[in-house]
Amino acid sequence: MEVGLNHYLFVGAVMFVTGVICMASKRNGIGVLMGVELVLNGANVNFVAFARYTALGLDGHVIAMFVIVLAAAEAAVALAIALNFYNNHLTIDVDRGDELRG
C-alpha cells in the first residue's frame, strides 16, 4: 500500500476532530488548551503533507513553522489566563466561568 496524501490528510483530520471534541468536552481549562494544541497539530500535519505532495513546497513548511511558534505563544498566554481564572474562581472548571452569559 502506497502511503499517499490522503492518508496523511486522514491522520490530520482525526487529530483535528479529536482536538475539537477535546475542546468541547473537557471541563478542565488545561484540557481545553490541549484540545487546541491537537487541532493545531492536525492542521500542521495537513500543511506539511501538502508541502510534500503538492506544489506548495517550502511554503507549507514555513506556515507549519509559524503555526508551531504561534501555538507556543498561545499556550503561554492561555496558561496565564488559566492561572488568572484559577486565581479568580479557585477552580479550573470552565463551566464556572459563565460571566459572559447573555
Partner: peptide, 18 residues
C-alpha cells in the same frame, strides 16, 4: 430570544461551532 443561547459556557460555544 437569542440571548438564551449566550450561556457564557466555552464548551457549548465550541459545540455550536461544530
Amino acid at each position: 430570544s437569542l440571548r438564551v443561547v449566550q450561556t457564557g459556557r466555552l464548551r457549548q460555544y465550541i459545540m455550536f461551532i461544530a
